[in-house]
Amino acid sequence: MASSQELSDFLRSVERRAFKQTVYAVRDEHVALDIVQDAMLKIAEKYADKSVGEYPMLFQRILQNTMRDYWRRQKVRNLWTSLFSSFGSGDDDDERDPLETIDVEDASKDPSVQLERSQTMHLIEKALERLPARQREAFILRYWEDMDVAETASVMGCSEGSVKTHCSRAVHTLAMILEKQGVGMKAIAQLGVES
């Protein structure tokens, strides 16, 4: 059974990645924060008796399910809002907070490297958002969360073969999109080393 301190350490280690991962899926930072918070509360409430070693897979499964719940609710809501679409404004982007633009830390001092990295990151993030949901899920779990094929398959609820196919397609698509934008894999590798 994991102690509260172990849970805290675990959540601290995954919260940023979980947040970004959710943002790529739902494309809304506020919704992503709510989803991550829900997932954290669920793991604390329902799986308090589990050992800390089980947390990474459990948390990913909870996070994916919470995202799916969100999509389901969104589908129903969209149905209703499309019926009353004339009442919608959808201009929330105007509310900008200066705090949102502050970077917490940036190891690189060279502005040109920072700019290049930021542009490449923007491209990768856009490309990730455009990937089909299952491919994105497989890619993130397999390479970002560093799960092996079997663990990824277990979290996604599919076969190992499907995971390999999804990952392969995701990497090819990402590489292709970046190639089209003039960013080759060499540049990616270089940026990775510099960061």
Partner: peptide, 24 residues
């Protein structure tokens, strides 16, 4: 290649706004 993409994403994930970090 997948890990290279993920490495970049990881670096970028550490640069979140103060407000987001506070909420997390």
């Amino acid at each position: 290649q997948g890990r290279q993409f993920a490495g970049l994403l990881d670096t970028h994930a550490n640069r979140l706004s103060m407000r987001t970090l506070k909420r997390l």
